[in-house]
């Protein structure tokens, strides 16, 4: 799993590239915890995430909870359709606002 970070305006866009499962989750979680700025706005781009396991979903939720504590805002974009179905069925989707494109996501986070 590769994690890339870029800044679009005031928003930190983090791209998760590869498979987020139990073998990659612990490292991804540590990296993301460092990358999510306190009080900042973060868009997680999953368009290049090939697979998300239970452990992967837990990383997303952990990051979301952490962001709530520090006053950051976290949203998702580029969620592949199957991943979206999994997240909806298991309730993980209800925690996040989701947008189709990075551009929309950035707009919503800065609105």
């Amino acid at each position: 799993m590769q994690i890339e970070r870029q800044t679009v305006g005031d928003v930190t866009v983090i791209t998760l590239d590869g498979s987020l499962d139990s073998s990659t989750a612990p490292r991804a979680r540590l990296d993301l915890e460092k990358l999510v700025p306190d009080g900042g706005r973060v868009l997680l781009d999953l368009s290049r995430t090939s697979y998300m396991s239970s452990a992967g979903l837990r990383v997303l939720l952990t990051i979301y909870r952490q962001s709530q504590r520090t006053g950051a805002r976290v949203a998702l974009t580029g969620v592949p359709p199957e991943m979206r179905e999994i997240m909806a069925a298991t309730g993980f989707l209800t925690f996040f606002s989701v947008s189709d494109t990075v551009q929309h996501g950035v707009q919503e986070l800065t609105a």
């Binding site: 239970s54 179905e85 999994i86 069925a89 309730g91």
Partner: peptide
């Protein structure tokens, strides 16, 4: 719906 991913407990 998520049985094939082993997520029936969460669902």
């Amino acid at each position: 719906a998520t049985g094939r991913f082993g997520m029936q407990v969460d669902e």
